[in-house]
Write a protein that binds this DNA or RNA. Structure first.
Length: 353
DNA sequence: CATCCGTGGGC
DNA sequence: TGCCCAAGGAT
């Protein structure tokens, strides 16, 4: 390479262009001796796993308003936390979030471990998140490797090996650059670079603080890196959902099993989405299949949900699930596919009155 | 090591 | 419209 990339060039850029984020201590405040709250760093890092900053902001504000400390979160009811997480996706994160909060509150006196190994031992914290918390909250010189770092390193060194095979050499490149001074700011600087300049598509190489040492910039390959192994096509699955509304306005819902898709979340009773025909209804009623079906795409398959609706009297005992009173039911506490079903079912029920 | 696990926005 | 993508972790 013509020049070696200098972490201090990136830190200088970060001092001038750092994004202001709700969970972040600005580089100026950090230099003045302000330390981040490990609880807020941890919460933001878990929310940001495979999730955009734009989507996380409102959830982060809501969670920290409801639960200002890890002890507050640890004491929260499971159902409330799952409901507040609804819409953010990857619901195992919410279940592990609560487990982690309770371990920290009960076994660590409400104080987060300050080492990579200590953090790794907690539920929902893997290699990346442990390194990010150790660096950002405790200023440890950990090698933080996320999607941004992989992209930036692949371009700096013009590495054409496809992910995930390229992971070791990208990690080695990242380790070589991680500075002993300001490791927390450095970790956040690489993420800001990846989010605002070294973006996946049409990177803004002309204004990049690492333009000079970037091999992909010289080779003209930046926009094509990192390479990735092609992914499988998604199959389409078919399922059925039953939406029952009681005369008093209560809705029949079911808590899904703790593991698997949408684990621990509320949903409408129905089939297992394996293309099986009409399953047994959750209660005996005059069911109507509505015209519209809910369409939703998950990580690894497309789903088409056929929707059956029914109005039932107040004394109807369900065979599956439980009725949720009208006043306490919040569609926003449903995972998105279930909220889509609700919107369609509610429209159909309104038309029949 | 491959698979499973959500969602909303951008193009 | 369909596909790609985003601060990964658990199994």
């Amino acid at each position: 390479m013509r020049y070696a990339a200098d972490p201090h060039d990136l830190l200088r850029w970060y001092d001038a262009h750092a994004r202001a984020l709700p969970w972040r201590v600005s580089p100026a405040d950090r230099a003045a001796g302000v330390h981040p709250d490990p609880y807020r760093v941890w919460l933001s890092e878990v929310m940001l796993q495979q999730t955009t900053v734009a989507a996380v902001k409102a959830y982060f504000e809501r969670f920290t308003t409801l639960w200002p400390t890890v002890g507050d979160l640890a004491a929260a009811p499971d159902a409330q936390v799952m409901g507040e997480w609804a819409g953010l996706g990857y619901y195992a994160r919410a279940r592990n979030l609560l487990k982690c909060a309770r371990v920290v509150a009960e076994d660590h006196g409400g104080t987060f471990p300050d080492t990579h190994a200590g953090l790794m031992a907690l539920p929902g914290i893997g290699p990346y998140t442990a390194a990010a918390i150790a660096a950002i909250a405790f200023d440890r010189p950990e090698v933080v490797v996320d999607g941004n770092v992989e992209r930036v390193m692949a371009r700096l060194h013009d590495i054409h090996t496809p992910l995930p095979k390229a992971k070791p050499e990208l990690t080695e490149a990242a380790a070589h650059l991680t500075p002993e001074t300001r490791p927390g700011d450095y970790a956040q600087a690489v993420m800001d670079l990846g989010a605002t300049i070294c973006t996946p598509k049409s990177p803004a190489c002309g204004i990049c603080p690492w333009m000079a040492p970037c091999a992909a910039r010289r080779a003209g390959t930046a926009a094509d890196l990192p390479r990735k192994t092609p992914k499988k096509p998604k199959p389409t699955r078919l399922g059925y959902a039953y939406v029952a509304r009681r005369s008093d306005g209560a809705w029949l819902l079911e808590e899904r099993p703790d593991s698997g898709l949408l684990g621990g979340m509320l949903g409408w009773p129905g089939s297992d989405w394996n293309n099986a025909p009409d399953p047994a209804p959750p209660l005996s009623a005059d069911w109507h299949m509505i015209d519209a079906e809910a369409r939703h795409t998950f990580t690894h398959f497309h789903l088409r949900l056929r929707i059956l609706v029914a109005e039932v009297p107040n004394d109807t005992p369900p065979e599956r699930g439980a009725f949720h009173p009208h006043h306490s039911f919040r569609p926003a506490h449903l995972p998105t596919v279930m909220r889509k079903v609700f919107d369609l079912a509610q429209g159909a029920l309104a038309d029949t009155i």
